[in-house]
Design a protein around this nucleic acid. Sequence first.
DNA 1: GTGCACCCATAAGCTGCGGTTGTGCCTCTA
DNA 2: TAGAGGCACAACCGCAGCTTATGGGTGCAC
Lengths: 292, 292
Amino acid sequence: MADLGPYDLLLSVAERGSMGRAAAAHGVSQAAVSARVRSLEAALGVTLLERSPRGTTLTPAGALVAGWARSAVDAAEALEAGIASLRAEQSSRLRVAASLTVAEYLLPRWLVALRTRNPGTAVSLSSQNSTDVAADVLADRADVGFVEAPTVPDELDAQVVARDQLTVVVSPDHPWARRRHGIDAARLATTPLVAREHGSGTRSHLERAIGPLAEPVLELASTTAIKNAAAGGVAPAVLSSLAVAPDLAAGTLVAVPVRGVALHRTLSAVWHRGRPLTGPSEDLVRIATGSG
Amino acid sequence: MADLGPYDLLLSVAERGSMGRAAAAHGVSQAAVSARVRSLEAALGVTLLERSPRGTTLTPAGALVAGWARSAVDAAEALEAGIASLRAEQSSRLRVAASLTVAEYLLPRWLVALRTRNPGTAVSLSSQNSTDVAADVLADRADVGFVEAPTVPDELDAQVVARDQLTVVVSPDHPWARRRHGIDAARLATTPLVAREHGSGTRSHLERAIGPLAEPVLELASTTAIKNAAAGGVAPAVLSSLAVAPDLAAGTLVAVPVRGVALHRTLSAVWHRGRPLTGPSEDLVRIATGSG
DNA sequence: GTGCACCCATAAGCTGCGGTTGTGCCTCTA
DNA sequence: TAGAGGCACAACCGCAGCTTATGGGTGCAC
């Protein structure tokens, strides 16, 4: 698995126009940057940079690689931001409580954005189900919370920040994949699915929307395992649109519309009514709202 | 910048349920896996795995980290797949020609999917504008091409594989960000934008849709530079929805609807009419279509 | 035209990370 | 009770990547 360090360096060089400036920005010597970029090019077998005595620019192939690298580096930054929020237990200025869906799929990117806008803010994250999040905010164990629940306690102010949707996904080879108009709710309810183990929020939400389900053909603990099973053709699965978006884009899974039933839900920020948002928490909610 | 190696290992361990099996899958010793995972946990200050004499499972924090890591590792895999396609000049079984938008934002993920379905296929990529792509396919320098052009030469078969949309983006602080109903085309045409240098496909497509534009306030060479300028509040920018999707999700940019004009375009696979798709090229087009 | 500033490349030496093998302890199963 | 499978620790080793120092090149200012 690739080390992203050299790519990060490549992006830095491309952005600043010279290896020396990139080196300064990273706090290393110019020679180190030169050597690292050279070894990256050697490993790839492609020349990425056009050197000149006046500086350095990307070759066409380099521009393509830089574009791809940007995505990977951004994803790695989101990972790091998330991890930082797990570690910063004490002395953190902003305490966030978030439901699993928000914590897994949305929060890291918000934290990256928050960090660029407001560096030096230590964020601590605790992740639980929606009712526990609300309790944490009420008890002042968290400055701001993010929940999936349609209703929140009276003592909390709330603002919708995003929307997701339960999505039926199948392997591209599955017969449902060819149905342009999808399936109806009754068909979904009577088809054995690959599902999360009992008690999952997604599963209960689905049952609330379309009634009792057929016995699952397979129960698995993690979203990834479910996606793999569905992509392998075991059976259809129902997951959050946030969870399956990359797989749909890659074509490894295909979404099947469901007629006659609304499967979306809203994700909201919540905070204590008596304690208005201040500074970092206000910034975070604003960032989150932008993504709606 | 993080090295994704340890995270890849973590995912492997989580998936297989024991360090020994993960070690075997990666071709290293069990002790190496144990040490690496331990050092990762030490660096993070968080226990990720629950060890037992019967194997290993993720802790709750570990599951969260694993979810984040999955995104980063997937992005890195797309990067590697793209790079492999640049390097594989000769003796490759599948020659692909793609326009810049497709090559940058869609193709790498398709290649990852193709590799899992059809390992051992060496893919070579050449990236140019749409008319050159069509020429490559016609001259049998490429087995399959991906273009943005609305029309293709008669000698080519075509299939729509995806759709993108020119999107007006502004900083979250910009006045347009608060307009729920967006702006009209005339307003857009008379507003100085941050734009690509003259001759870009995006820019000419925009002019074809809404007529002559105001003189840009700033011209930049790369998509990233344009996004940074727009996010910094310099001026609005117009970019492909594929390019700005992550920034919209992160909240660093806000999309502004444009009333009364259709700004979408289709991305199509093309191949020589006399030479039907076979094996790998057929798989690739099928994967690409799934993402539509 | 002659410094000077800025650029990239190379050389030589050092440090530390990650890998290996070998061993120990634990627990569940047959 | 023996064996299999699991994780951890110790000792040793090789290599990747960093540093400093130096050289060759170009363009600009005076």
